[in-house]
Design a protein around this nucleic acid. Sequence first.
DNA 1: CACATCTTGGACCGATCAGTTCAAGATAGG
DNA 2: CCTATCTTGAACTGATCGGTCCAAGATGTG
Lengths: 196, 196
Amino acid sequence: MAGRKQFDMETALDAAMVQFWRAGYADTSLDDLSRATGLNRSSIYSSLGDKDTLFLRCLDRYAARYGAKYDAALSRAGADPLAAVRAFFDVTLQRIADPELPDGCLIAQSVMAIPVLSPAVAAHAMQAFGFQRLRLRAALKAGRLPDEDAEAFAVHAAAVNQSLAVLSRAGASPAQLRTVVDVTIDALAHALPPRG
Amino acid sequence: MAGRKQFDMETALDAAMVQFWRAGYADTSLDDLSRATGLNRSSIYSSLGDKDTLFLRCLDRYAARYGAKYDAALSRAGADPLAAVRAFFDVTLQRIADPELPDGCLIAQSVMAIPVLSPAVAAHAMQAFGFQRLRLRAALKAGRLPDEDAEAFAVHAAAVNQSLAVLSRAGASPAQLRTVVDVTIDALAHALPPRG
DNA sequence: CACATCTTGGACCGATCAGTTCAAGATAGG
DNA sequence: CCTATCTTGAACTGATCGGTCCAAGATGTG
């Protein structure tokens, strides 16, 4: 029953991340984490740290993984602002549509829980939270959109993106979420011509 | 120390509501509720019910109170679609700007916690959650907006409205929230003319 | 003034929480 | 094969959880 580690670290971290993502920090006990990862408390503590540390690692893991997806999608989309916004939303919609993953967004949920999180965790959540808008703004600025419009587009799209997390958590279907995105893109498309 | 009730029911319910609103269901203990309301456990149980029941009452109280504010604002705004949307957002912005009240939105937070809430509470949260969009859609339909556009506007505005809760919880300033709203209204305004 | 009624404070319950400790035992190096 | 090293399972700790119970005592009625 011992000797060399009997589990894969990446798999265990993913399992812990999904558990926190589904149930939130407060409603995830060490027994839940033990069940989800297949490790017992001793192994969790020695290999993954205490609950706070582990949650921080999961938060950063989530931010890095999906942040990379946003970056890749925006880079693929190129210079057209609407294509960039569309690509941006598609990353979110794809994540939500994945039946293997919980609904919502770990970062958005963590931000909502800021008043009861430790300062360190809250700081990470807030930092990760701001990145989506900054990524999109940078992509739009790199394209052929005036800075002012890039900021406005990014603010608006990031806001709608956050709402997708709430809506999916409320049980909205992928089709309903797609409608929200389409309406948003439509509104942005109409706002574009008189300026660009 | 006893005899007739020594507290005001409405005040106590408001205090409990604010406590749940600030810290969420999971992170609110009976001691927290006791401290917030000034009542002790016995009085809470005999007068307000158990934790689940009390939370349900607070959720309904919140939905009724702010639902009424949305109704009143939309009714005051009249038939102009943009005025209606503006009035809709103003209710949210005013609530968030009130320093006496927690950031965010009790319903949005509850919806995010659905996987760990009791079925009864989850059902109430989901029902309350859908009302904003329906109120707005009804107001827009009553105005001079085609049904299809009314639905699209309502979907979009309700989504942005939800994001305001997340953003405020992340510490966004009232000015930043106002920017999100202004950008949204601007986009909707541009989407309007070619159709209406 | 006396009595029945009802609120209140605080002690108490079993369950569960995060976190610690340690012996059992599997492994790797010599 | 032997031993030092490290993981693992399980028991344990003190704190806190939601919920219950009951005596103390203030009130309204007669």
